[in-house]
């Protein structure tokens, strides 16, 4: 008994010690994982640790904000820097989940693309969700989302991100809605019904994915013939020798941003990290590692011309592409995601 009691005491002490031990000089940076995280490690985490001695604990998630909310409400914030997509940034900022950021501490606003500057966030990179395919498996190249829906011409499974965002836009594009009208149509109940009706036609041929690392793998293995994919993940697979191609026509681009969960005990280090990651030379390294465009315009000249041609920000690639409507998704996100989830499970 006595032994057991002292064991127990030791156990509790060690456990508590563990909890206290996390309050060191490390910062926890949460990103979307996979190839993008690897590139961030090369361009940002490792050099930052080298320059400042602050260790970066890397974690990944798929964009869900529940943990952030729980942490902030509990006043027990263990994530210090977080990569978020733009609707989540706006929503989180309004809901008080993120710290307000004094941009002067990060850099000169004029150096950045406008979408990278906001109340609670600092842009990281411009990325794009685009149609990708395995050129070894398809005789003819698809050129649009209409081709994506054309099962007779291109038989086989297609991959789409499991969620309403982007999926509904692609459905409308495939249904002949021009890029400039997509969000106007989607804002009406009839437009939403139209998008779901279009998805119904393809449903049997869709394989849903959640993590960005999945589409290149599934395309390479032949499980999929085409997929919506993050363009950077496809370019990373190209570097590994896979013959995957991106169709820029009908792609949707967005800026991912850093945000600091409200109440982070390491706000100063977090801000220092964000400043570090926003430096043009580091942004250029990042774009060299993965094909995402820099948000710091000063990084552009430092990027190799060959690399630049493969970025979503290249003028050639911008043709036929559209930007994410952040406001639309802030407003309709919850309802559409819920309806999408009910639809997908049926």
């Amino acid at each position: 008994m006595k032994h057991a009691a002292s064991f127990l005491r030791a156990a509790v002490l060690v456990a508590l010690g563990g909890a206290v031990g996390t309050a060191s000089a490390d910062i926890t940076v949460i990103s979307f994982g996979g190839a993008s995280q690897k590139a961030q490690d090369k361009a940002y985490y490792a050099p930052f640790t080298k320059a400042t001695g602050v260790k970066v604990v890397a974690g990944e998630y798929n964009g869900e904000q529940a943990k952030v909310k729980a942490m902030v409400e509990a006043g027990n914030v263990t994530w210090d820097v977080l990569e978020v997509e733009s609707p989540e940034l706006v929503r989180g900022c309004e809901e008080g989940l993120f710290e307000k950021i004094d941009f002067a501490q990060v850099g000169d606003k004029a150096d950045f693309v406008p979408a990278a500057v906001s109340e609670c966030g600092v842009g990281i990179f411009v990325w794009s969700t685009a149609l990708a395919y395995n050129a070894d498996r398809l005789k003819e190249a698809p050129t649009s989302w209409a081709d994506f829906w054309n099962v007779d011409k291109f038989p086989g499974k297609r991959g789409l991100r499991k969620g309403a965002k982007y999926t509904l836009e692609f459905a409308l594009l495939a249904d002949g809605v021009p890029t400039s009208e997509v969000y106007k149509v989607l804002a009406t109940p009839a437009g939403v019904d139209r998008a779901f009706a279009k998805l119904d036609k393809l449903k049997a041929n869709i394989q849903w994915w959640e993590a960005g690392a999945q589409p290149p793998q599934l395309l390479a293995s032949g499980d999929l013939v085409m997929s919506a994919a993050y363009n950077g993940r496809i370019s990373a697979a190209q570097v590994e020798g896979k013959n995957l191609k991106v169709v820029w026509n009908g792609s949707i681009y967005d800026v991912d941003s850093w945000a600091i969960p409200k109440g982070s005990p390491k706000k100063a280090e977090a801000l220092k990290f964000i400043r570090f990651a926003s430096q043009p030379e580091n942004q250029a390294v990042f774009s060299g590692e993965i094909a995402y465009g820099p948000v710091n315009l000063k990084a552009v000249p430092a990027i190799d011309a060959k690399v630049a041609a493969g970025l979503p920000t290249a003028p050639e690639n911008m043709k036929g592409a559209m930007a994410t409507d952040t406001e639309f998704w802030v407003e309709h996100g919850e309802n559409l995601e819920q309806r999408f989830n009910a639809w997908a499970a049926r």
């Binding site: 309004e94 407003e331 309802n335």
Partner: peptide, 15 residues
């Protein structure tokens, strides 16, 4: 956070 809670709850009634 209260304003976000109000907005979110009402949005559940109708987008």
């Amino acid at each position: 956070p209260a304003i976000a809670a109000i907005a979110k709850r009402l949005n559940r009634e109708d987008a």
